[in-house]
Simulated scan of single mutants.
Amino acid sequence: MDMATGELHADPALTRDLAIEARGLVKTFDGTRAVDGVDLAVPEGAIYGILGPNGAGKTTTLRMLLGIIDPDEGYRRVLGAANPQHVARRIGYLPEERGLYPSMKSYEAIAFMGALRGVPLAVGRSRGRALMQEHGLGHAVERQIRQLSKGMAQTVQLLGTLVHEPKLVVLDEPFSGLDAINQGHLEDLIRGLADRGTTVIFSTHVIAHAERLCEGIAIIAGGKVPFAGRVDEARDRIPAQVRLETRKRGGPWRAALPHDARRVGDFWYFPLPESGIEPLLRALIDGDAGILSLSIERAGLHDAFVAIAGEAAARDMVANRTGEPA
């Protein structure tokens, strides 16, 4: 949001129309603001992540965007509609709480979910079989849900979310409970959706998924969004770090290092100077430092999250992932 004008902007480098626009969303439960003034702008065809620990307000925000619950304050527009219920058949939603009928055959479960979004059962059955074949579950088409592994059942529910070919897919903690192999399959599926022009927004408390997948993110902590924008913008909140290894330990070249340079083992570490790396390189060469290696390491999204949301929120994220107390 532009603080001078009050206007809400999408990611500046992206000029696509917005699939989701929200401004000042507020939701209160029992006197506590679970969501406190959330602004979002998600371009069409983007993969967008909402990052935050459990209890930060991610699920409540998604449910307001979908029209499952209404905000107490604020404005939202989804696929051009002020009332998300008016475009519900163009949206696919995978809630955090998974649920399928155990006795249903897999492809029938997909068809049933499609029928809830207006897909004729015969069409849903055909698409269900095709989707399961496409995503490596052809051998399980006729199996009942109770006969599937947890990962396979979650994949079936996800395919049921996609069977009506939505333009917007909303996934609430989609990676939760999946092993590494199935997490990789899900990442590939999300990329494939975006390649076909589908907008994907998902919540997660695992930063690595957002770093690998997302063009844009919103960081949410305590119901507020301290950052919303491109992933590279978040990472740029922390200066790139220089790692330097020299043959000589002393000499006039040492004066070229920034005052906050620190030595760890054989390496020097310090923020990339505002003047860039070239003047430093020149001074090191002129000072006969004997450069053995020099690299510029950009901050990761985890470090950016810590800088933006704080150490406590980062600890909560790790606790959510490991199941340990924060």
Rank of each mutant, 00 (worst) to 15 (best):
R196L: 02
K27M: 09
R129Q: 13
M152D: 05
A289T: 00
R129A: 10
V242W: 03
I207F: 12
D260T: 13
R247T: 07
H302S: 08
E173F: 10
M113T: 00
L294F: 04
E215L: 07
K27P: 09
P95W: 09
L281I: 03
A122W: 05
I277W: 02
R247I: 05
L40S: 08
A41R: 11
S203R: 07
S106A: 15
A208W: 03
E173V: 11
L292C: 04
V170T: 02
I308G: 10
E274G: 11
P252N: 02
W268F: 10
I220T: 08
D188Q: 14
I91T: 02
S275G: 11
R262E: 14
H185G: 10
L213M: 12
F267A: 14
K224N: 01
P226L: 07
R23M: 12
A140M: 06
V306K: 13
T161M: 07
A4M: 08
G197F: 00
A256S: 06
W268T: 02
K105E: 14
I207T: 09
A304P: 03
F29I: 14
R243E: 12
M64H: 04
G251D: 01
P252I: 00
R77V: 01
L294R: 05
G323F: 04
A109N: 02
R77S: 11
G52A: 11
G92W: 03
C214A: 12
L171W: 07
Q144W: 01
A240D: 15
Y101C: 02
L121K: 13
D266Q: 13
T5V: 04
K224H: 09
D195R: 15
L65D: 03
V123E: 15
V42R: 04
I217N: 01
E165Y: 00
R127K: 13
S176C: 09
N182T: 08
G229H: 03
T155G: 10
L25P: 03
A22F: 07
S203Q: 04
G24T: 08
P95M: 11
I207M: 14
G250S: 14
A221V: 15
A210C: 12
Q154L: 06
E233M: 06
G250P: 00
P84L: 04
Q85L: 14
G74C: 07
L213S: 11
G52F: 09
T199S: 06
P271N: 07
R247K: 09
G276C: 05
A283K: 03
L25G: 06
I181V: 15
I285K: 09
P53D: 08
I217K: 06
Y48Q: 12
D195Q: 10
R146N: 05
G67H: 01
L284K: 01
A19E: 03
T61Q: 13
R263G: 05
E96L: 11
L280E: 04
H135N: 12
C214T: 12
W268L: 02
G177V: 04
L178I: 13
R249A: 12
G74P: 05
A240Q: 10
L189M: 15
I110K: 04
K167H: 09
A13G: 08
L272P: 05
R212W: 05
W253Y: 05
F112H: 15
W253R: 01
G24A: 15
R282T: 12
D303K: 13
A153V: 01
